[in-house]
Amino acid sequence: MKSLIRCMCALTFGLLAAVPAHADLKVATSLTDLASVAQFVGGKHVTAQSLCRGYEDPHFVPAKPSLMKAIQNADVFVSTGLELDGGWLPLVLPGSRNPRIQQGTKGFVDASEGVDVLEKPVGTVNRAEGDIHPLGNPHYYADPKNLEVVANHLAEVFSRLDPANAADYAANAKAFDDRMDASLAKWEEQMAPYKGASVVSYHKNFDYFVDRFALKLFGTVEPKPGIPPSPRHITELAGAMKQAGVRAVLYQPYYIADAANEVAKRAGGVAVEIATEAGGLPGTGDVFSKFDVLVASVAGALSGKTGAQQ
């Protein structure tokens, strides 16, 4: 009997010993870009997943209970901040019953902290201007430099939660910054011929890219944020583009391709589908490949070599 008990104890301790000494940090994010950055910074110590897919409109993610389940055991939640996920996150976070990642706790991260936010409304916010973001434009992830801010922020958070691997997180963030700086130099070279060129985007989610690469945003296919384009707006926008010689219309996979194509066709330009979120198009699996494809697409549209002439 004693030997049986000894045997069972040995088996139990053996099984316990087989469990890793510490579990990875489980990180969930609102956006694919944030998951990609978290994975670079966390390396082997982190598993990161995004609740929103790269080809899904980050404003309108259905607050499915399965999303709550997906973050039930997360150690960290990285929100885009600036209310981009404000339409669904206030349901998903409490629904997870996970006290570690609620707003105000150590596990909740507002990734927009430290980012130089564009288009902060001055004075009263008025929805007559459409569904505007009261805290400023939340699409900062379209600027590569802003992702460095996010990477350094996440390295601090991960280090606080997992001090044993703090050195790895700091080193990974430094490597991320270095790689992003080197890539940015390459992308700036690719975009250099188009400095000052004008583009039309579907929604006001391309402003940070425009700002970084010294382009000009001529207009948007949406007449106002969140308001679908009317035939009249399409006619007026296309007419103005034609007059000003603007040819490139850029739209994400989750917007109405027909409307973007119609504007481009009437303006005599090209409409090009772009991914501003990692995973939005094939070959954009992480933030570096996303910018590789994005820069090539925009440069192609502005050169007139990409996209069929409409």
Partner: peptide, 11 residues
């Protein structure tokens, strides 16, 4: 049973 296509979640 609910269907919301990710590429057209708002349409």
């Amino acid at each position: 049973i609910r269907n919301v296509p990710p590429k057209n979640s708002n349409r």
